[in-house]
């Protein structure tokens, strides 16, 4: 169930990206706006056809799979998910079970509801929820089916600190259960704290990959984000304080 990405390219947006990942890993994908994070995720889950290279998961090439086969393999949370109709959370999640071929839809619903701790939200309308509550519901939708691979595009965007930590804990938990979790994100501190491995994109190219401490080096951050960073050691580990480069430094 390992992931292998070889020389992946898509138009001018992404060039020759290669990496591998194993089940149980939480892989963070970093980069400035327009660096190619979302394009990479859409290529990973087969929504875009690569102009070169291939994405292989468990020995099968994603772009050659049927949409139904891709559905059984991975759960995808897009960058700005939203509900188009004013329906209840329960109906929203039930609709999200489509094409999953579940043996017991009821127990699957209970599983994700308990995982995301959204029992009290089920009867409420999706449109009536706060941003954090909505994000948890969308993550619950992406977790339906218990697929071996979870792909999330900026799951902590626009969330307050409490929900950011909660979402990252949930993703860490999913990786702990043996899933491969690939997450595009902007928060370098959260990435350093929760991810096993990071990929840093710059202008559509893979600038660095590896352990967080190695990827988030001064040189890489200066090139990819035009920032410098100061690392602080805390009780929970390390955290990163970014600041803009001065004219002389850049």
């Amino acid at each position: 169930m390992s992931l292998k990405v070889t020389h992946l390219a898509y138009q001018e947006r992404l060039q020759k990206v290669s990496f591998a990942a194993q089940p149980g890993e939480l892989v963070g994908i970093l980069g400035a706006n327009g660096a190619g994070k979302s394009t990479l995720l859409q290529l990973l889950c087969g929504l875009l056809k690569p102009t070169a290279g291939a994405v292989t998961f468990a020995g099968s090439e994603i772009s050659q799979m049927s949409a139904l086969a891709q559905r059984q393999l991975l759960g995808y949370l897009p960058q700005a998910p939203h509900a188009e109709a004013a329906i209840s959370v329960e109906h929203f999640l039930r609709a999200g079970m489509v094409n999953l071929q579940l043996r017991s839809p009821e127990s699957e619903l209970q599983r994700v509801v308990q995982t995301l701790r959204i029992e009290t939200l089920l009867a409420r309308g999706v449109h009536q929820l706060s941003g954090g509550e909505q994000r948890r519901v969308h993550i619950a939708r992406a977790l339906l089916g218990d697929q071996p691979w979870l792909i999330c595009d900026e799951p902590t965007a626009s969330l307050d600190l409490y929900y950011q930590l909660q979402v990252m804990e949930i993703l860490r938990e999913q990786a702990g259960q043996g899933k491969l979790v690939t997450v595009a994100m902007h928060d370098l501190g959260l990435a350093a704290r929760y991810c096993d491995r990071l990929l840093l994109l710059d202008g559509g190219e893979l600038l660095a990959q590896g352990a967080p401490a190695a990827v988030l080096s001064d040189a890489n951050l200066a090139q990819a984000y035009k920032i410098k960073a100061r690392w602080l050691c805390t009780e929970d580990g390390v955290t990163l304080l970014p600041s803009l480069l001065t004219d002389a430094e850049s």
Binding site: C45, L47, Q70, Q72, A83, V98, L100
Partner: peptide, 21 residues
């Protein structure tokens, strides 16, 4: 009907739900 029903999701989510859109 399942495909029509899946239009409660945004286009990106819908694209990942296993339909030949």
């Amino acid at each position: 009907r399942n495909f029509i029903n899946a239009h409660i999701f945004d286009p990106h989510t819908l694209a990942s739900l296993g339909f030949r859109q």
